[in-house]
Amino acid sequence: MDITTLKNVLEHRIELSPATGRPRFKAMHNDVLFHIERLGGTAKAAKLLGAFPADVEQWIDEHHVPQPFADRIHKLTGAYVSCIQEPPTVLIGEANVWPPVRNGDIQKRLGLPPLADDGATRVYS
């Protein structure tokens, strides 16, 4: 999904990540970013969780923390696992969902197909 389309649809709710250059929800709309910051930022959280900083940045950008890291964040910060695994998804046009929905259980619950080869979630009518 290109940033211009996202900005047109989501207005003030998105930004480009200074670390990765990918679009993500701004802090006030990004529970993952909020709880990573509570852990001391990307580098400290990565060390504390036993993850790579690049992976933590991806979690922030995609608003999805995989298990068992989500459970660890819950224990450390009190974050609701559903809030750090289920991004507020937005349908762009008739076919694209942003951010991509990576969790298989969430895909099933929302009736979404698996990720496309390019990592996007697409809904086809």
Rank of each mutant, 00 (worst) to 15 (best):
V32I: 05
Q58D: 04
A70K: 03
A51P: 07
I60A: 04
R38M: 10
A45Y: 13
D71K: 04
F69N: 01
Y80R: 09
V32E: 03
G50F: 05
A54L: 04
G40P: 10
F69I: 10
T42L: 06
A43M: 04
E37Y: 14
H29S: 08
E86L: 03
K75T: 02
F34I: 11
D31C: 02
L33A: 13
H64V: 14
E37S: 13
K75H: 15
H64L: 10
L39R: 15
R38S: 12
A27W: 07
I36F: 10
V90H: 15
H63F: 05
P87R: 09
P88D: 06
H63N: 04
L48T: 14
G78Y: 09
I73S: 11
G78M: 06
A54T: 00
E86W: 06
E57S: 11
A45W: 14
E62V: 11
H29A: 11
G50T: 08
L48D: 04
L76C: 05
L39I: 02
I73Y: 06
T42N: 03
L49V: 04
P87Q: 06
L48M: 15
G41I: 14
D61Y: 11
F34R: 04
T42E: 04
P88H: 05
Q58R: 12
I84P: 01
A46D: 03
H35F: 14
H35L: 11
L49P: 10
K44Y: 00
Y80F: 10
E57I: 13
V56T: 14
L48H: 09
H74P: 01
D55H: 05
T42Y: 02
V56Y: 09
S82A: 14
K26W: 12
A46E: 01
E57W: 15
T89I: 12
E57K: 14
I73P: 12
H29I: 01
K44Q: 13
A43G: 00
I73A: 05
D61A: 12
T77F: 08
G40V: 00
D71V: 12
C83Q: 10
V65A: 01
D61V: 00
A27F: 13
D55Q: 06
I60T: 02
K47D: 10
A46R: 11
D55M: 09
R72A: 15
L33T: 06
G78Q: 09
H63C: 02
H29K: 09
E86K: 05
I84N: 00
W59H: 04
P53H: 08
P87H: 05
M28F: 11
M28C: 07
C83D: 02
A46W: 01
A43F: 00
D61M: 04
R72P: 05
G78V: 01
I60P: 02
F52I: 01
P68Q: 05
P66A: 05
T42D: 00
I36K: 02
W59Q: 02
F69T: 09
F69K: 08
A27E: 14
N30G: 01
Y80M: 09
L39V: 07
K44D: 13
S82P: 00
L33V: 03
G50P: 12
Q67H: 06
H29P: 03
V81Q: 13
Q58Y: 11
L39F: 15
A46Q: 04
M28S: 11
